[in-house]
């Protein structure tokens, strides 16, 4: 289970964020004492840090700058200070992403999983059962047979694969597609999923994508 540290001084926001992450299958670790945040950051063994900019006693950007000297654990800045200056500053101090409040939780998850994936997969090929997933070629390869996926199908398949065995909602799939400049509508999503199913059947995976009524899809 991925551990995510939350550094957010607004109590209600922190609690809701913890709950949100817990429900999504992460292990949230919330910082509650703001006197020695820097030490807590260094001591914590986590996979990702969500860091607010406006904190009591200290500025998130300064914390980040200090933290980067000793660690390259991914950090996502969460802030209501929505200016380009803050974003440029944060990115130059080594933030991996910059998300402004109020955030759409679906988009936040997308960012979190993208950042986690970037830091985890350093060239290792992803597998789906006995098929190799090639994001570079945009295809699935099983026993030498290659099945080409379209960009949309690949985005959908990736998201389902990252959360294999879990329910992925249509809303999440749609957000992921839009986030990749594919502004599809409901019908197009259904069409893409049935085409993806067809291609998986051809590779010998019948019933790979299960539909959960009113909830979403599960890749098995």
């Amino acid at each position: 289970m991925k551990r995510i540290m939350i550094i957010e001084d607004e109590t209600s926001l922190r609690d809701e964020l913890s709950l949100l992450l817990k429900n999504a299958g992460y292990e949230p670790i919330a910082v509650t004492d703001y006197n020695n945040v820097s030490e807590q950051m260094k001591a914590a063994n986590v996979d990702l840090i969500l860091l607010d900019i406006n904190l009591p006693n200290v500025n998130g950007e300064t914390l980040l700058q200090e933290y980067r000297r000793s660690s390259d654990t991914p950090v996502i800045m969460l802030t209501s200070r929505n200016t380009e200056i803050d974003e440029v500053l944060s990115m130059s101090y080594g933030a991996d992403d910059f998300v402004t409040k109020p955030y759409n939780p679906t988009i936040l998850f997308l960012r979190i999983s993208a950042v986690l994936k970037r830091s985890a997969s350093k060239g290792t090929a992803q597998m789906y059962h006995d098929a190799e997933v090639s994001t570079v070629k945009g295809s699935l390869i099983k026993n030498g047979t290659e099945q080409i996926l379209t960009k949309n199908e690949m985005i959908i398949f990736q998201l389902l694969l990252d959360r294999i065995g879990e329910i992925v909602t249509r809303d999440e799939l749609m957000t992921a597609l839009w986030d990749n400049d594919e502004f599809v509508n409901d019908n197009a999503l259904s069409v893409n999923i049935s085409r993806l199913r067809g291609k998986l059947v051809e590779l010998g995976y019948p019933d790979a994508i299960e539909t959960r009524k009113k909830q979403g899809y599960v890749l098995k």
Binding site: E10, E16, L17, L20, S80, K101, Y103, P105
Partner: peptide
């Protein structure tokens, strides 16, 4: 004020989702 008002809005949004 804008930064302040965004906090409860963000909070509400998360509560709705949760």
């Amino acid at each position: 004020w804008v930064h302040e008002i965004k906090l409860p809005v963000a909070g509400l949004q998360l509560m709705c989702h949760n």
